[in-house]
Simulated assay, not measured.
Amino acid sequence: MAKIWKVDCACPKAKKSICRHKPWKVRYRDPGGRVGKQLEVSFKLKNQAEDFAGKVEREKAVGTYIDPKQSGRLMEDVWNEWLSIGNREPSTLASYRGVYRKHIEPVFGGRTIGSITSQDIAEWRAGQEAAGLAPATVHRHYVVLKAAFI
């Protein structure tokens, strides 16, 4: 559960609780709840902090939470990391690289993973179908892309 508190301030108005320097902080754990994996975010207003804390907890509950530090990574870096994990046959790796080079990289390669929305992916799929690819092929490309995000 996210914790919300007001940070202490050294200004003279701090004791009167009217100090505007004191930001509200939200501290929360990543979905795995590991010790040492706490994150903090500051807000000027209490209701902003409460809204953010609620949003984070909802995203964790439904499995849509994305670590803000990880969301800044380029799709290409995430892709290469995903390819290096596991034990895949050379022919499978070649197939995945071909799908990435021809269908994923032109659209998502230079973007951060945090900027890619479900709408972007839906439009990408529709674009592949509009280009005349068979539905089964489009689905295979989608499955490969989805696997890199998991």
Rank of each mutant, 00 (worst) to 15 (best):
S71G: 07
S71Q: 10
G72S: 07
R73S: 10
R73T: 03
L74T: 04
M75T: 07
M75V: 06
E76F: 01
E76S: 08
E76T: 10
E76C: 00
E76V: 05
D77P: 01
D77Q: 12
V78S: 12
V78A: 13
W79Q: 02
N80S: 06
N80H: 14
E81S: 14
E81N: 14
E81V: 07
W82P: 08
W82M: 06
I85L: 15
I85S: 12
I85F: 11
R88K: 15
R88M: 12
E89S: 14
P90C: 02
P90H: 08
S91T: 13
S91Q: 12
S91E: 08
T92C: 06
T92H: 10
L93N: 11
L93F: 01
A94R: 14
A94I: 00
S95T: 10
S95G: 07
S95C: 03
S95F: 05
S95P: 00
S95K: 14
Y96K: 10
Y96V: 02
Y96T: 02
Y96M: 04
R97Y: 03
R97I: 01
R97K: 14
G98Q: 13
V99Y: 13
V99A: 11
V99W: 10
Y100T: 06
Y100Q: 04
Y100H: 07
R101G: 01
K102S: 09
K102Q: 12
K102D: 11
H103V: 04
H103I: 05
I104R: 04
I104Y: 06
I104K: 02
E105W: 04
P106I: 12
P106G: 09
V107N: 03
F108H: 06
F108E: 03
G109W: 02
G109C: 04
G109V: 03
G109D: 09
G109L: 06
G110E: 13
R111P: 03
R111F: 05
R111K: 14
R111N: 03
T112W: 00
T112C: 12
T112Q: 14
T112V: 05
I113G: 06
S115R: 12
I116R: 06
I116K: 01
T117G: 00
T117E: 00
S118I: 13
S118F: 04
S118R: 15
S118Y: 08
S118M: 11
Q119I: 09
D120Y: 00
D120H: 12
D120Q: 05
I121R: 10
A122L: 10
E123L: 15
E123Y: 09
W124H: 13
W124N: 03
R125S: 06
R125W: 00
R125M: 10
A126W: 09
G127V: 03
G127L: 08
G127F: 09
Q128W: 00
Q128C: 10
Q128M: 15
Q128G: 15
E129H: 12
E129M: 10
E129W: 05
E129F: 07
E129Y: 05
A130H: 09
A130I: 02
A130T: 08
A131Y: 00
A131L: 07
G132K: 08
L133H: 12
P135H: 08
P135S: 13
A136S: 15
T137Y: 08
T137H: 07
V138E: 00
H139A: 08
R140N: 11
Y142K: 07
Y142E: 07
V143T: 06
V143D: 05
V143E: 09
V144N: 11
V144H: 06
V144G: 01
L145S: 10
L145C: 11
K146T: 01
K146I: 01
K146N: 12
A147C: 04
A147Q: 13
